[in-house]
């Protein structure tokens, strides 16, 4: 089938899934609400009953899930394109732990309590860790191979994780507020947190869309790109900035959620080729569906409570990671 047609078909399918998961996300949860209340709510017949209130409470969570998923998906697509590495993902690169460390330090040393304050800290932590890990992995003459990148990431995670414990353990207040942030959940989302995240996502996504054609040129190789009038350093830098803003802002508000950025672009690239002008918007859509889907799964398997989306995501994502590793040729490890 022609790639254009295949893309159109895929887009249609993913949009249907998007609608379905949105419905499911509003309808399903620890309080069971019969279907006709949803119809009443949409048609405007009933907006005041308890059931309607429950359904309305799930709307910000759904919106937040969509936005966070889109951000993580695009961030993964960008990171894989920049590093030319199939296993690049915020969680694998240890970026989440970096953000955690900065947030913990903020909570315990600067006595920060509101999300609007630690979004900046998380961004700084994510950015620094990403640069550090990638820098360490690309030392020496083999470049940043998947094996080196993953190991540099886990080295950073171990080190930063120990630092997090050192800061956190003496102070049980910090430990409590951190514990809830650390699991990665979109359950606590409110309209306020969405408004807080929105400017970051807007900047990140616009930058990603602008960069897509240039990243395509970069896939031809740095020299070819330079010959075509594209500055590889600038393109990489701006794309990396966009990727870090997207995953840092999401991590600050939702906690560390891994594997969205790993799975989505990888699977899409297999089906639709590596044209980033297609890949980036579709990664956004697919990431949104995937995160919302795992949030719904978490609500179902955790019933009557719920299991955080970050945990469900790791349980789905890690096997996919293993499958990818099994497929990569040994030489390029």
């Amino acid at each position: 089938m022609h790639t254009g047609k295949r893309t159109a078909l895929y887009t249609a399918v993913i949009l249907v899934f998007l609608a379905l998961t949105c419905f499911a996300s509003i309808l399903l949860g620890s309080r069971r609400v019969p279907f006709h209340f949803l119809i009443d709510l949409i048609t405007g017949k009933d907006r005041t009953s308890l059931e309607a209130a429950v359904l309305l409470r799930r709307v910000p969570r759904t919106v937040f899930g969509l936005l966070a998923g889109a951000a993580l998906g695009v961030s993964g697509a960008l990171m894989q394109a920049i590093t030319k590495n199939p296993v690049a993902d915020p969680s694998i690169l240890g970026v989440n732990t970096g953000a955690s460390l900065f947030v913990v330090c903020g909570i315990s040393f600067l006595h920060i309590t509101t999300a609007s304050q630690y979004i900046w800290l998380a961004l700084a932590g994510a950015g620094l860790t990403a640069v550090l890990v990638y820098g360490i992995a690309s030392l020496g003459n083999g470049g940043a191979t998947p094996l080196k990148l993953v190991l540099a990431g886990s080295a950073a995670s171990v080190a930063l994780g120990s630092l997090v414990s050192t800061v956190m353990l003496p102070n049980s207040n910090v430990m409590n507020s951190f514990r809830f942030w650390q699991v990665g959940s979109i359950g606590g989302a409110t309209w306020d947190s969405i408004m807080l995240m929105l400017p970051f996502l807007a900047v990140g996504l616009v930058l990603a869309f602008v960069m897509a054609p240039f990243l395509n040129t970069l896939l031809l190789g740095d020299e070819m790109a330079a010959g075509l009038g594209v500055n590889p350093g600038v393109v990489r830098g701006l794309s990396a900035l966009s990727g870090i803003v997207l995953c840092g802002a999401t991590t600050a508000l939702a906690g560390p959620i891994g594997f969205v950025g790993l799975m989505v672009p990888h699977v899409l690239r297999m089906c639709l080729g590596s044209d980033l002008r297609r890949l980036i918007p579709l990664s956004a859509l697919t990431g949104a569906v995937l995160l919302l889907f795992s949030d719904i799964i978490g609500r179902l398997i955790g019933y009557p409570g719920e299991t955080e989306a970050g945990i469900v995501m790791a349980m789905i994502g890690a096997p996919v990671f293993i499958a990818i590793v099994r497929k990569v040729r040994i030489r390029s490890l």
Binding site: V87, S91, P146, L147, V150, L151, S154, V183, G258, F259, T307, E308, G310, I311, M313, A314, M315, G317, A318, P319, F321, I322, V325, R326, I330, L333
Partner: peptide
């Protein structure tokens, strides 16, 4: 392949940690 075993081990670690958190 030993390299592959290390990478797969790290994947398994992610699953195990997710389960512990759960």
């Amino acid at each position: 392949s030993q390299s592959r075993m290390i990478l797969i081990g790290i994947g398994v670690q992610a699953i195990a940690n997710a389960f512990t958190n759960y």
